[in-house]
Design a protein around this nucleic acid. Structure first.
Lengths: 153, 153
DNA sequence: TAAGATTGACTGCTCAATCTTA
DNA sequence: TAAGATTGAGCAGTCAATCTTA
């Protein structure tokens, strides 16, 4: 029939999905680079920072941390034990639910989360400054709409 | 010092990097799901579709395919041989440069690229329709600015 | 020296399946 | 039955190192 690709996009750069994927990959590389000196990976940072940020007056289970961080429960299970082994998180039995595990950041974990967060937020400012004249708020609004549509909000 | 996270974002959803990462992950899940019946992964599809789309009057080396697809050269090296094993691509010696390898899609590869592309473009239309009143062009423009800033354009 | 390509190792993300307890 | 957690397997993405040829 054809020996070419029949597409609605004259150029790949006009495909929103493809561009989204490329941009995320370059952003991830930047984040990974600034986290490396701290000795943690991106997912480890997100979970540790989210746990530190969350209100811990109520017990935080792995399930609730996973939901807040937007990371799936299997990944959370694995990474949380890595963070425990590194001394940044403690895992204790839930007093009322014997299936559940309560998570708390250690003082070292809270300290690391804050030090690493300074560098990550600096990367974000630098990376997204390329938006130039387009208000950053417009871009974030787009992302929030797309995210909400998936999470059923 | 503190037992909380000191951040410039009152809510995680206001962090552009975090939202970018979440949105890409959900988009990737959707794409993976529609490609599964075709028996190929996302990266395999991107490389096969890019090769099919590229002008092949000039010999296409792995390096040039990797550059056009925005995929790193090691990943390209691995996946291209998978595509060859599946019968979607042929690899031949470059006539003038004995280091290089010339890639061509087979008729089966061209056919698969076109069939799969229909489904992937349908996912994109569906997924990004959530942008609602915000023009999709605005979102793509943001992504292009971010991408160009990284590639030195 | 540089460029095209490859290998091995490690983390990330997902899926299917399982185990235990509510 | 459902919910919290875990394990194992497979593909994705990156890095360091290597090999061959320009």
């Amino acid at each position: 029939m054809t020996d070419d690709l029949e597409t609605e996009y004259p150029q790949p750069a006009e495909s929103p999905g493809l561009m989204l994927w490329r941009v995320t990959n370059t952003w991830q590389r930047r984040v990974r680079a600034v986290l490396a000196p701290h000795g943690i990976t991106h997912v480890q940072f997100v979970l540790l920072a989210t746990l530190t940020w969350m209100d811990r007056d109520q017990p935080v289970t792995q399930r609730s941390l996973a939901d807040h961080a937007g990371i799936d429960i299997m990944m959370t299970s694995q990474v949380v034990r890595v963070l425990e082994a590194k001394g940044y998180i403690t895992r204790h039995a839930h007093p009322a639910d014997r299936r559940a595990i309560i998570l708390s950041p250690t003082p070292a974990g809270i300290d690391l989360a804050n030090r690493a967060n300074v560098d990550v937020e600096a990367v974000d400012r630098s990376y997204f400054s390329a938006l130039g004249s387009t208000p950053k708020a417009t871009f974030i609004h787009c992302l929030q709409q797309l995210n909400d549509a998936q999470t059923g909000t």
